[in-house]
Amino acid sequence: MTEPLLDIRNLCVDFGPASKPLRVAHNISFTVGAGETVGLVGESGSGKSMTALSVLRLVPEAARLSGEILYGGRDLLALPKRDMPEVRGKEIGMVFQEPMSSLNPVMTIGAQIEEAILLHERMPAAERRKRVIDLLRLVGMPDPEARVNAYPGQFSGGMRQRVMAAIAMACNPRLLIADEPTTALDVTIQAQVLAMMLDIRDRLNSAILLITHDLGVVAEVCERIVVMYAGHVVEDADVHTLFSRPRHPYTQGLLQSVPTLTDTRKRLYQIPGSVPPAGTITQGCPFRARCPKRLDRCAVEMPPMVTQGPSHRAACWATAMEAVA
């Protein structure tokens, strides 16, 4: 197997004083292969956004990162701070959750897309202008020649998210990180934006790391899924395996709580309890309080990621026992 495009190893994100750190991401490890679409799934507060921001080192200033984030074999966390702008936008593009606030209100969308090109590539202004129009066309903006001089305030949320995608794709990055790109949008617009992203992926052959809490979106779009819970990766599998044979009790609970069209009479399953706030669980498995399969051991020691099959890993003592038995 070839080396993955993005290889996150033992990533930890800490806030607060070094003597009493508040850890929001614990030993996160997963990979994204070239051209692969990976979904990073979890409830809000699971640390998935922080993990995504860590890749570009856009976490808040107070956060401390440790571990390794290998991009094309280079550790981004070891890179001097001043070299990060070379990676951002050029190697890795990012689309954010809030299309309404993520664009600068006093710059035209054309100028904002152009800036992304300007920062990384030298080319004549006319050519750059043409590239901006092409990008707008690529993301499905109707009448790009006219809209290029409009301000973000003149667009709807879906259109702004297309502009965001155009910015992220401006320099043909090999990896696109999309942090809940469709959460703030209407359902019909969500589908359009997702279709647009897949279309871009197929044309430019970029890898996508899609952060979402919506399993439906993941099932539709992704090839592989990484499930996070309370700052830990708890399961990692390709999409078919995960949906047919989930191994972690949390994933199982999540899947049971997705409504289906075929069986509308059944009351939806709900995982009892709620996600513990970061820092409240210092030992053992964070899911144990809500887990139907918990063992004594769960309170003492965090289960390691155990291989469950080809490209399938899960972190649960109960399933580890089953696998052995």
Binding site: G273, S274, P276, P277, T280, I281, T282, Q283, A289, A299
Partner: peptide, 14 residues
């Protein structure tokens, strides 16, 4: 101490 923490629900904390 860990045991006590476990029994404290988020609602209690809030």
């Amino acid at each position: 101490t860990d045991l006590r923490m476990e029994e404290t629900s988020p609602e209690d904390l809030a």
